[in-house]
């Protein structure tokens, strides 16, 4: 209970602190540059120039300290060894030759291809189908629900599905193995199955992200003008033709947004791998490898930072694309 009290008092201090800052800084500004007297005009100009900065200052400070500074700091750290000496590109050279890093990079690229593609595909199918039926919004809710579940919770849910009992341990209680046996196959320890275990981990993220893709794409589909669809319908197009030739081309922009958003999520994937395999049996990914170097018995912040910079580099194209899109919209 003590700590909840601590939390609540932090909220009060934080919220009142913020309000007090904004309130009093505005008053001070008005005192320093009063909007009356001989210099009223000049003072108003000055205070209008300064006031926006009062409003954005706390946000800029926090963002600067918690996101901008770390990017540069991590970059510099990536060129140092465990004792803090400058070693140039040595950590990156080590990365290039490290087997675990190559495995992680390869797995990350695999995730990068499969997860966004599958999530967007299933999302599109779900959006297209639920649009046409009466209980569509209920169906959407149920498909969307995994979005609310933590990656760790989802990992437990799926680990239970992949559960494997050895030969003399009785009936299979994992759904996947029970299905495989019912169809005449042999039960397997899916989580340790080389290569395919990566796919089984990806399924978890696809299960989570499909709802996200569906919600966004469904809204985009609803936004398509009725006229084009009516016209195609009158020309005798089948529902499938309408979907693929009329609707999809009109929502390419949204599909790209969904795809890139999931791509960024995938690049940072950590929890699922950490909870399911912790990178064993050939399932290592960059974020987990970085965590490993950061918290292992003898941490190496230089190597950890170098791995982070690789993730950063992979995210950069999406970042540039997002910025240029936002720029176009604001104009």
């Amino acid at each position: 209970m003590n700590q909840l009290f601590f939390a609540v008092s932090t909220i009060i201090v934080g919220v009142f602190g913020c309000v007090a800052y904004f309130y009093f800084s505005n008053i001070v500004l008005d005192r320093v540059f009063p909007a009356r007297g001989p210099n009223a005009g000049r003072n108003i100009n000055r205070s209008t120039a300064i006031r926006p900065w009062l409003f954005v200052l706390p946000a800029l400070l926090v963002l600067g300290l918690y996101l901008v500074y770390p990017v540069f700091s991590t970059f510099f750290l990536s060129m140092r060894d465990t004792s803090g000496d400058f070693v140039g590109a040595q950590n990156y050279v080590w990365l290039a030759g490290d087997e675990k890093f190559r495995e992680s990079l390869g797995n990350n690229l695999l995730w990068l291809v499969i997860v966004p593609a599958a999530s967007t595909f299933f999302g599109l199918v779900a959006a297209g189908l639920t649009d046409r039926i009466k209980w569509g919004s209920l169906a959407q809710s149920l498909i969307f629900m995994p979005m609310a579940i933590s990656f760790v919770g989802a990992s437990v849910i799926w680990k239970f599905i992949y559960d494997y009992r050895g030969e003399n341990q009785g009936e299979q209680i994992g759904l996947l193995n029970a299905l495989v046996q019912a169809m005449g196959g042999d039960a397997q320890a899916w989580i340790t199955l080389p290569f395919w275990n990566n796919i089984f981990l990806m399924v978890i993220l696809i299960w989570i992200q499909t709802g996200f893709a569906m919600v966004i794409l469904s809204a985009a589909l609803k936004g398509i003008s009725e006229e084009t669809i009516e016209a195609a319908y009158l020309d005798g197009a089948t529902p499938l033709q309408i979907f693929f030739k009329i609707k999809i081309p009109q929502i390419w922009g949204t599909i790209a947004v969904v795809w890139t958003t999931i791509t960024v999520t995938v690049l940072k994937v950590f929890d699922i791998v950490f909870a399911m395999t912790n990178g064993q049996w050939g399932t290592q990914v960059l974020a987990n490898l970085m965590y490993d170097w950061m918290f292992r018995g003898s941490p190496d912040f230089g190597r950890g930072s170098a791995i982070v910079m690789v993730i950063m580099l992979l995210v950069t194209p999406v970042m540039v694309w997002n910025i240029s899109n936002a720029h176009k919209e604001n104009r």
Partner: peptide, 9 residues
């Protein structure tokens, strides 16, 4: 889209 991992160390 900055990966949070950047901030940890």
């Amino acid at each position: 889209v900055v990966p949070l991992q950047v901030a940890f160390i």
